[in-house]
Design a protein around this nucleic acid. Structure first.
Lengths: 211, 211, 211, 211
DNA sequence: TATGAATGAGATTTCATTCAT
DNA sequence: TATGAATGAAATCTCATTCAT
């Protein structure tokens, strides 16, 4: 069967896709602002411009909405990261590759709404083992793989010294995570300039790694 | 009034103090495990071995309990930090002072229940501006002051290069915060060895700062 | 207007009739299994192989569907009962007529899906005065009329003693109703053999009535 | 430990017991009138003169309330039946024992609010396998045991003929169940006089059984 | 006629907080 | 001071019904 669809069906499907995307946007906005537990389904619905009942046509529960939002926001980004970094990759020095990856991260996660997702995972993770696992496997371990390959590359080329330590990835990327958290939590008291901060981070990190 | 107290009054006060401390311990345990919103006053009361009603004799509300717990757990530590670091301070190299501070932090915060407080602040901060302000002013800015003075000391002595960047403190301490979060959230998937991690952190950081 | 119909109209009407009948079957199945309140229009629609919207083209509301189902299932049966019993009637003894009626009832109601209707009327009756009235007037009082005429016939012929009591019909038919309920509710715990039970019922009843 | 209770504790406990009993009464009234699914917890609470929240201090859920109500209403009765019938038992004829049992049933179940419980079990049974099992095991099979021993007694004494049939108990008791249902469902259309009905029932039954 | 997306009123349940004892 | 029963506002989720296509 060639799976022929009538124009009406196509329109309907496109509409549904758009709805889903609207809901995900609204959910990120509301969850980011209020946290998972405090957020109300009513608020998300209102933000998405639909009724509460409609929400449940797209997501079975509040938890499912949370998970769906994280997936919907992070998966496309990961694909983009892989194609972008990999594409530009081969002829760069390890230093430049690291810079590239970190700037990608700052630009596409930390400087956007997505940084709230990281905070939400930190905050709600223990209550959502399922989601935490997904996040670890899909986002973190992939990011770590890219990072590790760059470091290895750098050591082989003699750009980086051998840092034998445990948890290098976490130490290296920590600055970014903290920037995201700080921006959300403490910015009112001591604002942070993400661009400048990014450069400091790269600076200290590269210096700390260099051979 | 010379504030003379009968022995009975003294005993009563000591008892009250003990109660309060028990409640704070219970609150940390419960909040750390479940998060603020999910935690129930009942659970805290039970954990503290008292009734729900009694809880309200010590703390006016759930929020007040949260704040009281954070204060009760962090303030004594800060005093200890200041006396400990300051005391041993003057004749050490900047490197050693930095090491000292960071190890204090790893030993007294990250390796104990207190690390959950940091996660809770990250998670719930935006819902508690009042508490966030307190935390920033009392904990973070004091920690930052110590850190900054060490860095300045190191630059003067020619130990550290001048890192002009914005957000140096955050970059420098980030590793610790992330260690705390990672331990709580992702440890089941990829365990982290805090001691080894601490050394990696210090290693990369000191190398990244050295002149 | 002579009500002439085109073949197309005829086909359409037959189709509609078939649909309606499918829906009634589905409704009986679902209501019987779940009870009125728990049953969902969605489930009925799915069972009938149509969409929820279509259901409302045939029945205005859930209540209307319930009533329509009861009518659709019981009315044809009553007509059949009357023609069958009446037809065979005159030359039989009262005993045999009673046997005939009771066996008809066991065969066409208790041993089929229709027994659930009786249970539903018992269960939901008070919430549907309208339907209860219909059921009483259409099903029960007609059944009672047949029963009473048989008893009268039997007394006149000297087959039955005069049982002056109030509620003889209910007492007499009770066994059947209870069989239906038992089969639905307690069969898992203590199964009931409807055929054997029918004979016990007739046996005790006829003996209890005989002159 | 002698389990000494303070007067205050005793008072509190008595109060709780009274509350529970009030709730059970209210629940029976409401469930009897509206059926399980249609009944609202609000209505039960209001009927019991308490708030909705309080209801949940005594019963964990609507289902638990339903079960608790059935237990609370039926268990005491069963104990009473056993002591009453057994006590008066030995020197009576089987006929009189049967009459005694049936009149007990009419007087204590059918003529009171409790008859609604039977209807509720019939109506909601399939949705509460747990409760149905309890009801069968606790109420029905015990009632059946009493009935069976009387019949056997009667056959041994030559009072009753041997009715070999399957389901004799159900046939015999059916009249009572139907009386209860009829009173609840069809009384508005054709009222039933329970006392007279009881005698008809006993009359036909004893005659149908006699040797 | 048939569909299924959308609605929103309403239900159960939870839990911070109060208060009489 | 300590208790725990009581409250009621509020949240999640359901589902009969409507309506545009």
């Amino acid at each position: 069967m060639p799976e022929v669809k009538t124009p009406a069906e196509n329109r309907r499907e496109a509409h549904k896709e758009q709805r889903r995307s609207d809901i995900v946007d609204a959910a990120l906005k509301v969850f980011a602002r209020d946290g998972f537990a405090v957020s109300k389904m009513d608020t998300v619905a209102e933000e998405a411009g639909i009724s509460k009942g409609t929400l449940y046509l797209y997501f079975d529960s509040k938890e499912a909405l949370f998970e769906g939002m994280v997936r919907g926001k992070m998966l496309p980004l990961l694909e983009q990261l892989q194609s972008e970094v990999m594409a530009a990759g081969d002829d760069l020095s390890a230093k430049d590759m690291l810079r590239l990856q970190m700037r990608f991260f700052y630009r596409n996660v930390l400087s956007t709404d997505r940084r709230h997702i990281m905070r939400l995972i930190m905050a709600e993770g223990p209550n959502f083992p399922h989601l935490t696992k997904f996040y670890y496997e899909t986002v973190l371990s992939r990011g770590k793989a890219v990072f590790t390959s760059i470091i290895k590359h750098g050591i082989e080329r003699g750009e980086f010294r051998e840092v034998s330590g445990h948890g290098l990835m976490q130490v290296a990327m920590a600055g970014g995570l903290v920037a995201a958290l700080w921006k959300t939590v403490f910015d009112p008291f001591e604002p942070i300039d993400l661009d400048a901060y990014c450069e400091t981070h790269i600076d200290v990190l590269l210096d700390g790694l260099k051979a």
